[in-house]
Amino acid sequence: MSVEEGWIDYNGHMNVAYYVLLFDRVVDQAFATIGLGPEYVRARALSYFTVELHVCYLRELTAHAPVIGTAQLLGHDDKRMRLYLELTHAEEGWVAASAEELFLHVDLTSRRAAPFPADIRARLTAMQAAHAALHWPERAGRPIRLEP
């Protein structure tokens, strides 16, 4: 991915909203690999909604900066998924931002929480098992604080 000129704000760096946009693109790609893409939504009338998001802005991204996004599944249950995401400068290797996101699986007909179908639950279990080999992210579960 690349930072677009129109995403730069009056401070000369990428506006906070576009970090979230890039994280959303990473989520879409990661979830498509386990069958939770647009075709899943159309065929089953099921989807997932973000119910909580915590972003840490670590370094500024400027216009045209190349960015790589990663996703790590930290946990899941019958209806929820917890994901850790990072945006990294693709050439220089530093982490620009991280996010932790909680998703709720939803029946789009009733607009209520719904359990994952067995095939998706199996893929989530396999993804989580694979991601268990990764280190636990330092910023995962981090609260917002204002220390005196």
Rank of each mutant, 00 (worst) to 15 (best):
A118M: 01
T125V: 07
V55R: 11
V95Q: 07
E101C: 14
L83I: 14
D77F: 11
E138T: 12
G75A: 08
H135E: 14
G93F: 07
V55S: 14
T62D: 05
L124Y: 06
M81K: 08
V106R: 02
H64C: 12
D77Q: 10
A114L: 00
A96N: 11
F103A: 04
Y57F: 06
H131A: 04
P115C: 05
R121T: 03
T109D: 04
V106Y: 08
R145W: 01
I68L: 06
L104Q: 14
M127W: 01
E91H: 03
I144F: 09
S110C: 03
T125I: 03
L124A: 02
L74D: 14
L102N: 08
D107S: 03
R59L: 03
A97S: 14
H89V: 12
A71I: 05
R112I: 00
L108K: 00
G69V: 05
A96G: 13
H105S: 13
E101W: 02
L104C: 15
A122C: 03
S110K: 02
T62P: 02
R59F: 02
T62S: 10
A129S: 00
E138W: 01
R121G: 02
A140H: 01
L83S: 02
T125K: 05
E86D: 12
V55G: 12
H131D: 14
M81L: 04
T62L: 10
P66C: 13
E60I: 11
R111C: 06
T62G: 11
T62N: 10
A129F: 00
A130P: 04
A140F: 05
H54C: 15
A65H: 08
P66T: 15
L108W: 06
I68K: 07
L108S: 01
P115A: 12
G69R: 13
V67C: 11
A71L: 13
L102W: 06
T109L: 07
S98Q: 05
L104D: 09
M127S: 02
C56W: 06
G93V: 13
D77P: 13
R142F: 03
G93D: 12
I68S: 04
H135W: 12
Y84V: 09
R139F: 02
C56T: 07
M81P: 01
E92N: 07
P143W: 00
D77S: 13
T70D: 14
R111P: 11
L104M: 14
H105L: 11
R123P: 02
L102P: 03
E100C: 11
L85S: 12
A132F: 08
S110F: 00
E86L: 10
P115T: 01
E100K: 07
P143A: 05
W136K: 08
H105F: 10
R59Y: 04
L124E: 03
P117H: 01
S110D: 04
T125H: 07
E86A: 15
A140N: 09
R82F: 09
D119V: 03
Y84L: 03
P117Q: 02
Y84Q: 06
R121W: 01
